[in-house]
Design a protein around this nucleic acid. Structure first.
Length: 495
RNA sequence: UGCCCGAUGGUGUAAUGGUAGCACGACCGACUCUGACUCGGUCAGUCUAGGUUCAAAUCCUAGUCGGGCAACCA
């Protein structure tokens, strides 16, 4: 953990990084280190640098420093303090360390090359005065190392071989190497850079994510729409699928934009194999079975996970009045529609074949309920003795036994695919998806009411869901939609 | 008008001098008690121009395009 700057409140980030990394399945064991663990050693190395004539105390103000640095095409010029004696530098750095100098009045700089084409090599600052309390070292120090100085040293102290970081630090590598060479550290770690991940339809920069949180456009860092580890976790994504996704996309050095479909595939692939099924109706309409006895209730057996025999089965109550998905009925059917429609027969999952006999409507012509008859010879959803087949199978809930739950249907956070390619002056926030969260009341199998927070389930024919870890209460789970099932019918409809 | 890095199907990648392969996706089909899963098929790629070589995605040169760099941030 690079906790080199005490004025940046980072305790909460440190904690969540640890939590996230552990959840992903990794363990530091005894190898959890912080830059602040090495402050004394780093300070001693700074003194060595001064003694070598490779570092000096400089009094330039921020503005002067910028001016002296030159720019992308012009070389910089030396600080007036650049050639001060070693003895004087030692004395001044000691004063800085003891807190005898004011913040901003002096810094320690490495003495490299003010004409380097790499601006980071034009005598970079390596220590600054910060009279602030550090979350780990308290008030021990008045001077703190810059990240660029701390990074190569902590790697060397730890005997790191490959120090992996993101692309924007590529230009810092010459200083990384310079420091190790100048100090002649026993270990010579190598910094290797790789591209950070960009995903379609979302933002990944910490700055933008922080703005989403601060402006309350999401509920927090762990809002299930956030591409953060805590957001994915709360949404119901598994560590396995994240790791699989990472293996798939690999590690490279060029900026790319990964299609979120790759992530969704990894999620479905894992959840399909591991998660139990249940029935839930998100947008219910009543289905009345005219020839099923009133008041009769049957317990029908439903398999929990066809992909995993060990998951066993459960009983689901069945009765005369059911609820089915509004989408699963069409009074005037579309072409190739093989769900319920007048005269057509479908299977009720794990129950019976039913044939639609018509609908009842109110005075305005709105459909109040769908009516049908069932075939007792198809109990359990089995093919009847006459070998009759149906094209469609739909899910259902017994109205009298239905549980009522809140379901949160999440969609992509933005409507724009690439948030890094905005027109000049365009605000990325204008592309926020107004429908990234839709809340629905769903009717579910009674057993689902006992779902523990964090438990994942597939609502058959709908999608994968996870009981929310924050807003669920005993007996009243709130379900977050992790990802929908693939829907090839939707594609047909779209055409 | 500088320096550094990069470029392979729609997307993400593999191939480091020797058959351009894999996954996602899209499309077609089979199967199906989830229009899911699974299975079969199809689509589609080495940024450009020179050069080296028996042979170049790979090495060299130039160009084009993209990204990064001027906090006492990380």
């Amino acid at each position: 953990m690079d906790d080199t700057n005490p004025t940046k409140e980072e305790v909460e980030y440190v904690d969540s990084i640890q939590e996230d990394v552990k959840w992903l399945g990794f363990d530091w064991g005894t190898h959890y280190y912080q830059a602040s663990d090495y402050f004394a050693r780093m300070h001693a190395d700074a003194i060595r640098l001064i003694e070598m004539g490779k570092a000096y105390v400089c009094h330039l103000t921020l503005e002067q420093m910028r001016e002296y640095r030159g720019d992308l095409v012009n070389p910089g010029k030396p600080s007036p303090s650049r050639d001060r004696s070693v003895a004087e530098n030692l004395k001044l750095f000691a004063q800085m360390t003891k807190g005898e100098l004011d913040e901003g009045s002096a810094v320690l700089r490495a003495k490299i090359d003010m004409a380097s084409p790499n601006l980071l090599m034009r005598d970079p600052v390596i220590y600054r005065i910060r009279k602030a309390s550090h979350h780990n070292t308290g008030d021990t120090w008045c001077v703190y190392p810059m990240y660029d100085y701390a990074h190569p040293l902590e790697d060397a102290y730890e005997g790191i071989t490959h120090s992996i970081c993101t692309l924007e630090f590529e230009i810092h590598r010459p200083f990384y190497d310079w420091l190790l060479r100048t100090l002649d550290t026993p270990a010579k770690p190598r910094q290797i850079e790789f591209a950070r991940l960009n995903l379609t339809y979302t933002v990944m920069s910490k700055r933008r994510l922080l703005e989403l949180v601060q402006e309350k456009r999401v509920s927090g860092w762990d809002d299930p729409r956030m591409p953060t580890v805590s957001g994915l976790r709360r949404r119901g994504v598994t560590p396995t699928s994240i790791r699989k996704f990472c293996e798939t996309i690999g590690v490279t050095k060029h900026n790319s934009l990964t299609d979120v479909a790759l992530l969704e595939h990894a999620i479905r692939d894992d959840l399909n194999k591991t998660v139990p099924r249940a029935m839930a109706v998100l947008d219910p309409i009543r289905l009345v079975i005219e020839n099923y006895p009133e008041g009769q209730v049957e317990e029908l057996e439903a398999i929990n996970n066809p992909e995993d025999p060990a998951a066993g089965s459960r009983k689901v109550p069945f009765s005369r009045n059911l609820l089915i998905e509004r989408d699963d009925f069409m009074e005037i059917p579309a072409k190739k529609y093989f769900r319920l429609t007048p005269g057509q027969e479908v299977r009720l999952r794990w129950a019976y074949f039913v044939k639609c006999t018509g609908v009842t409507k109110d005075a305005e012509g709105n459909i109040l309920e769908v009516r049908c008859t069932y075939d007792p010879a198809t109990r359990g959803g089995e093919t009847p003795p006459d070998g009759r087949k149906v094209k469609g199978t739909i899910h259902w809930i017994s109205e009298a036994h239905a549980g009522d739950v809140e379901v949160r249907l999440y969609d992509r956070l933005f409507t724009l695919e690439d948030l890094n390619s905005l027109a000049d002056g365009e605000d990325w926030r204008t592309h926020l998806n107004p429908n990234s969260l839709k809340v629905a009341r769903a009717k579910v199998e009674p057993s689902l009411l006992q779902t523990k927070p964090g438990t994942r389930v597939q609502f058959e024919r709908v999608g994968y869901f996870c009981a929310d870890t924050k807003d669920s209460t005993p007996g009243k789970p709130v379900f977050n939609r992790t990802v929908t099932l693939k829907d090839s019918w939707a594609k047909v409809v779209a055409k």
